[in-house]
Amino acid sequence: MQDVPAAELLGMYSEIVYRLAYSRTQNRHDAEDITQDVFLKYIKSAPRFNCEEHRKAWLLKVTVNASKSLVTSAWVRRRANIDDAENMKVDFSQKNELYYTVIKLPQKYRIVVHLFYYEQLSVLQISELLNRKESTIKSQLFRARKMLRKLLEEEQYEL
């Protein structure tokens, strides 16, 4: 596949990468850091793809790994509490009630929920992307749904 110019590539995938990073970090600055890392890595490693789906899968995988590294970094975790409070003030207007529900989910469930409900990936695709067993993804989805159901009880959401 022919390589595409940076602006075009960002037009196609920046939102996907950014939203996935945001789903994991729930922080605008960290999501931007991850997005930048992913696209610069793309340029540096110049991977070859068979099709557009392949390119998307590569970007999702690298985003998951970059988010994981950032989230498990001691420094980020330490400052997360302080930043979240500031960040919430900035983004308040854009968040609906789901934000407050989703943020209550453990990080490992948030990413699975995002890939399943937003990216509409199958359990098998998610398991390949996250290097987890299919049964693990199934049980994580089950637990996430259970938590969401409890949290969204008053809103009468259909899961």
């Binding site: 920046s14 939102e15 950014y18 939203r19 945001y22 789903s23 999501a31 931007e32 997005t35 854009q94 968040k95 609906n96 789901l98 934000y99 989703v102 929920v113 995002h114 409900y117 937003y118 969401l148 969204l152 959401y157 259909e158 899961l159």
Partner: peptide, 15 residues
């Protein structure tokens, strides 16, 4: 529907 609401919520998150 949670799926559509979640999608709507995500569409509002733009870099």
């Amino acid at each position: 529907n949670f799926k559509s609401k979640y999608k709507e919520y995500n569409e509002s998150i733009v870099p």
